[in-house]
Structure formats: C-alpha cells, structure tokens
Amino acid sequence: MPLDKKEIENIAWLARLTIADRAIAGYTKDLADILALVEQMQSVDTTAIEPLAHPLEIDTQLRPDEVKEEDQRDSFQNIAPLTEDGYYIVPKFIE
C-alpha cells in the first residue's frame, strides 16, 4: 500500500527531517518496496506468541543513587556548535 505525498511529509515531520519535493517520489517508492517486504510477516499467525524486546531477557540493573561522575561540562561544551556562559544556545522558542 503505497503512501501518498502527504503521508511521506507527515512521517518526515515526525522524524524531524525535511524532504525536498523532488525527493518525495524516491521515498514513496523505497518505502513502498520496504513495506511490501515487511508485509511477509503477516503470513504467520503470532497471536499466541509473546513479543520479545531483547534477546537475553535480563532484568534491569539497579545501582545505589550516588554521585560518581565528575562535572565535565566544559569538555562536553567544547564540541558544541554554540554555547554561552555554560548554556547551549538555540533560536528563541518560548514567547
């Protein structure tokens, strides 16, 4: 079931991607091909099978709530695109 232009644009928006108009046809075809491949999954009745999220089914590991890491803000902000006084700078988005 091929997706239309509006659906492709909606997925792109959810994924925070901008897709140029000339690229829409390519994505429509690729996603249709991938979804056709994925459709094979429907050939097996899985109602009696529990979903498996993780191969090892291990329990969540807990640890004491203690501060162990050092403050590395300067080192992390060294690789940031834009900072000021220890803050990450982005365009204003709160009115």
Binding site: L17, D30, I34, V38, T46
Partner: peptide, 28 residues
C-alpha cells in the same frame, strides 16, 4: 530511509501491525 521506516512502523495505528508483530516473530 531507515529513520523514515522506523518512524512509520512506530507511529500511531501501525505499532501493533509492524513493531509488535516483528517482536512476536523475533521470539519465534
């Protein structure tokens, strides 16, 4: 392409048919 595919299979209305289905088959 993979981000788009992943966003689609996780989006409302498709999660059960794709993602949950895949997880069930993963156990199989």
């Amino acid at each position: 392409r993979r981000i788009m595919t992943g966003t689609y299979v996780l989006s409302a209305g498709y999660y059960d048919a794709y993602y949950l289905k895949a997880q069930r088959l993963r156990r199989l």
